[in-house]
Design a protein around this nucleic acid. Structure first.
Length: 201
DNA sequence: ATTCGGATTCTCT
DNA sequence: GAGAATCCGAATA
């Protein structure tokens, strides 16, 4: 399967966040490919979005990738312990990004790496990748993969997937400081999917 | 089922 | 020096 091309990413993160659901994220580790379904995303919309790192156009070493053209990764460390994977969208100097919040392993191989990288007690396999910090651990994603091109075959890329599902919109998670942006429904997930991190109340 | 605190270090002021 | 787009285990109920 070929990567989605860059035009897919050169749009508002709200659109891309919705359309990334059901797409397949491919992670290459040492000549092996692991496939995961994207089941939960959040849109962060740059300048106007108080929850976004790039709010008011804040340009620092950390946020720099978001100011580039869509189609690359933006990876940051949170709470000193966990990485979060984002896909940069929209055109240059419009710092939009989509946070990948949950993935579903699509085959046994994918399940095996996830379990290996993230040993857990419970037998519930959805605990492996049902959260942004968890999935980075499970897929060996850290800052060395920051600014990876997802429109070409490399460590991470994204291909076409399924369209057989319903989309649920909900509030984004854990952004208490975002004021009036706290309650906008810019989180999207696949209805009835076991790997979604937080369900709508 | 739900709440709580601790972990741990990068990033920016 | 404060605070962070989180996770886990323990405790309560």
């Amino acid at each position: 399967m070929n990567p989605l091309n860059q035009s897919f990413y050169l749009r508002d993160s709200l659109i891309v966040a919705k359309e990334l659901l059901g797409k397949i994220l491919v992670r290459q580790i040492k000549d092996k490919y692991y496939r995961f379904l994207i089941v939960e995303t959040e849109a962060y919309r740059g300048i106007a979005d108080k929850a976004a790192h790039a709010y008011e156009g804040k340009r620092t070493n950390r946020t720099l990738p978001m100011f580039k053209e869509g189609g690359i990764t933006y990876i940051y460390l949170i709470y000193g312990m966990y990485y979060c994977l984002n896909i940069v969208t929209n055109v240059k100097d419009t710092p939009h990004a989509v946070l990948i919040r949950a993935l579903e392993p699509l085959d046994d191989e994918a399940l095996q790496v996830a379990a290996l990288n993230r040993p857990i007690k419970s037998k519930k396999i959805f605990d492996l990748t049902n959260g942004p910090g968890k999935l980075c651990k499970a897929l060996e994603i850290d800052k060395t993969l920051n600014e990876s091109d997802v429109t070409r075959k490399g460590p991470i890329w994204i291909t076409e997937g399924s369209h057989e599902f319903q989309v649920i919109s909900d509030k984004r998670i854990n952004i208490p400081y975002a004021m009036e942006y706290q309650d906008v429904e810019w989180r999207f997930y696949i209805k009835d999917n076991k790997f979604v991190s937080v369900l709508k109340k």
